[in-house]
Design a protein around this nucleic acid. Structure first.
Length: 744
RNA sequence: GAACGAUUAGCUCAGUUGGUAGAGCGUCCCCUUGACGUGGGGAAGGUCACAGGUUCGAAUCCUGUAUCGUUCACCA
């Protein structure tokens, strides 16, 4: 039987069995890593990339070291690696930097939750230093795990440049940025109403709030019998801190009272109320009068600022009342609410109680109800005119990036989201009362304040200095990511070669907190944009369209999928048909379909190697004089390659990958190969040779074109192809993209 | 309250610039034992949410409506 297959020696034994990704992928990744080709310096050294080639750089959105990578990360890696491999093959000086994010509050919160569950202890049972180290260790375990996962995804990351937002180099970048902003007055310390998380005992920024709808009661009442105006509130317990009642200046009902001041005893607490006029008050809502509590509401604080009202703090960090008699003092806000309401009823001051739906802000991490409190904190001023930037504000610099500097957001509808966020931006509270993170690089000694950079931690010379105990919002360090990873503040070659980066590829949900912050930092510190294109991907949901989450336990481990179907199949399923900014419901059927495709490609190769002529000596660069039939097939194929190339260059990977899939299976295999069987069997020698060359050519180029999407199987098949010229002698990862000629 | 998105075959979703619809899975029939049973051929199945409009022509552009979803804001 064997003797009938006179070309069987062309077929490696491995190819005779179905494709086995599990056996292949790990080995191939190791091969790549050892080759050094993930590192652009090595590519230049070995003559793969020209020294003066244009660079293509991209930093990985650093995953939080709170846990492991999930399918959303698989999507992100599939997209980025496809583009990176494509650009590398096109001859760009291609750099993709890996890294992870310490994620400050998220990591500390998760660690502390585990700690309490397992040992009953909390952070207060440890020294600051010990606790920091424990959280960090927890993070580093996850970090290591994620590095393994990234390799499993096949990502061609330059591991020699790996970064962590909390490592020494990044810490230097953080201190440098902080000092520069501090010295120019952009970072300031101020006593303002901030979002306080009573459970986490820290401030949180506006972006870390989650609004939850709840039932609430809207109470309408007067402070005292002789007070002329009724007010409404859902939080009567805060009203012991009121210092004014605000009405709309055009409201005829109340005009006569504007400017008057009243004393009252509210729930046994003496208060002094001034009646003021402010346009922010809507006459139509409630009674048209707003009780102003400057210490416990952002909006009221703004009104109070405009009218120079005193501010009285009545709620403390533990969300307990800190004024009043024994009935009130020390009570939790929820208890105090009912006590005050009852007092109002008892004193015939309550006019109305209605049930309403209300959105209450909670902490993203601890789920605690946020208490607005006045506190001394560090802020970044987004409205200050910056002398070193032609008196533009940070907000203006951020808008400039998309309006003038050409930062392109894909899909473009998110451009609006970006602008809207910036236009509503308030000063960014950057200090946190947690331990895990970058400690504020500021030291105090008496009235002296020192802000420093120098390693190891920036501390000043001499004795008696104590460092500010707060740490920075995690987004402060991630805002520096595109350049802190390239060696900034040192003027390194990497920084010169690769910044601004070409592309960034995060999920759309972090457009405001991350993408916008990177633009802020880069525009201010470097006077340039951090990246040229922002490709936003969507969310991977479960098959029912529900978001994966740890609490719902509906997560699917990427490893399971990879074990069953292979990474290439998973990657294809994450790319084909999923447009930018679109969510996708994960469906294992889709992955299975592409694992079939992998096998199909495997068998196409087997067939061509075993059925064509002279495969050992076939030189692709020696194109025979093809008859029309073959010539047309070739033209059609090249046209598709050009098409696909254009699609990828415009980041339409979801279309390019599908076209490739469709061509290879339903044109190449189903039509071209099928009709070749007869030719290869019954044709003349010339016919056989021409057809053989054509099949081998399309196969070879298809494998190259598929490589960005299915890197493992294509690299493996590449090794089986005849080695008849220099190009084919190399690893597939560094072969030139098949249609460089097609760019014409 | 506002912005944005979605609404296409039984299910999950593509459809890049307007030229009367495609994929995967599922269903049914047939074929394939010399690439692949993870294969091949074929079939059924869609008034492209609805109503108007622009156009020679619209799933694709415009207006409005409905339902679902996301995000932002928030009424004190």
């Amino acid at each position: 039987m064997e003797d009938e297959h006179n070309q069987a020696q062309n077929v490696p034994a491995k190819l005779l069995k179905p494709y086995d990704p599990a056996e292949t992928e790990g080995r191939i990744y190791k091969l790549w890593e050892e080759s050094g080709f993930f590192n652009p310096d090595v590519c230049i050294q070995k003559g793969v990339t020209k020294n003066d080639a244009e660079s293509f750089s991209i930093v990985l959105p650093p995953p939080n070291v709170t846990g492991r990578l999930h399918l959303g990360h698989a999507l992100e890696h599939s997209l980025q690696d496809a583009v990176v491999r494509f650009k590398r093959m096109q001859g760009y000086k291609t750099l993709w930097i890996p890294g992870t994010d310490h994620a400050a509050i998220a990591t500390q919160a998760r660690f502390e939750k585990n700690l309490t569950k397992e040992t009953g202890k909390s952070r207060h049972d440890f020294s600051r230093n010990d606790f920091f180290n424990m959280v960090n260790e927890f993070g580093l375990i996850n970090q290591k795990d994620m590095q393994t996962q990234m390799r499993l995804f096949g990502s061609s990351l330059d591991w020699s440049r790996e970064a962590f937002t909390l490592d020494a180099n990044r810490s230097l970048a953080v201190r440098t940025a902080f000092k520069q902003m501090y010295d120019e007055g952009l970072i300031y310390k101020g006593h303002k109403v901030i979002n306080w998380d009573p459970k986490g005992q820290t401030t949180v920024s506006d972006d870390e709030l989650v609004y939850v709808e709840r039932d609430a009661t809207l109470y309408t009442f007067k402070y005292s019998a002789n007070f002329p105006i009724s007010i409404s509130t859902t939080r009567p317990e805060t009203k012991v801190g009121d210092t004014a009642v605000a009405v709309n200046p055009n409201d005829e009902r109340y005009k006569q009272y504007i400017g008057q001041e009243f004393d009252a005893v509210f729930c046994n607490v003496p208060i002094h109320i001034k009646i003021i006029a402010d346009y922010s008050v809507e006459a139509e809502f409630g009674t048209g009068a707003l009780g102003v509590t400057p210490a416990h509401s952002q909006i009221d604080a703004e009104i109070a600022m405009r009218h120079e009202l005193p501010s009285v703090q009545v709620i403390n960090e533990y969300a307990k009342i800190m004024v009043g008699d024994e009935n009130l003092i020390g009570k939790k806000t929820s208890e105090a609410r009912e006590i005050v309401a009852q007092w109002l009823r008892d004193n015939n001051l309550m006019e109305k109680e209605e049930k309403i739906k209300q959105n209450v802000s909670t902490s993203e991490r601890t789920e605690a109800i946020i208490e607005p409190l006045p506190k001394m904190q560090w802020f970044i001023n987004v409205n200050k005119q910056i002398p070193s930037h032609k008196n533009k504000t940070l907000k203006e610099l951020m808008l400039e990036a998309v309006e003038k500097d050409g930062v392109k957001i894909i899909p473009d509808r998110f451009d609006k989201t970006y602008r809207h966020w910036i236009n509503n931006l308030r000063d960014w509270c950057i200090s946190r009362q947690i331990i895990y993170g970058h400690q504020i690089p500021v030291w105090y000694k008496g009235d002296e304040l020192y802000c420093g950079i120098n390693p190891p931690a920036g501390e000043p010379e001499g004795d008696g200095w104590t460092q500010d105990t707060d740490t920075l919002d995690t987004w402060f360090s991630s805002g520096l990511w595109t350049f802190s990873t390239l060696g900034w503040p040192n003027n390194t070659d990497d920084f010169k070669n690769y910044h601004p980066t070409t592309l960034i590829n995060p999920g759309y949900e972090i457009l405001p907190p991350w993408v916008a912050r990177m633009i802020l930092m880069s525009k201010y510190l470097l006077n340039e944009v951090p990246f040229k294109t922002v490709y936003l991907h969507g969310i991977v949901r479960d098959s029912k369209g529900i978001k994966f989450s740890k609490s719902l336990k509906n997560g699917i481990e990427p490893e399971e999928i990879i074990k069953d179907c292979g990474t290439d199949a998973l990657r294809m399923s994450m790319v084909v048909g999923i447009g930018p900014g679109n969510d996708t419901n994960f469906d294992i059927q889709k992955v299975k379909a592409y694992s079939k495709f992998a096998n199909k490609l495997w068998n196409i190769t087997r067939f061509i190697l075993s059925s064509t002529t002279q495969t050992n000596t076939l030189d692709l660069s020696q194109k025979p004089n093809l008859p029309d039939t073959e010539s047309n097939i070739l033209d059609e194929f090249e046209a598709i390659l050009i098409d696909i190339t254009t699609d990828i260059e415009n980041y339409r990977l979801y279309i390019a990958s599908e076209k490739l899939y469709h061509y290879v299976w339903h044109n190449f295999a189903d039509i071209i190969i099928e009709e070749s069987k007869d030719i290869l069997k019954n044709g003349s020698t010339d016919e056989k040779n021409n057809r053989s060359w054509l099949l081998m050519y399309i196969l070879t180029r298809s494998i190259q074109a598929l490589h960005p999407f299915m890197p493992f199987i294509t690299e493996e098949l590449w090794s089986f192809l005849p080695k008849t010229n220099k190009e084919q002698d190399n690893l597939l990862i560094i072969t030139p993209w098949p249609i460089t000629a097609g760019k014409q």
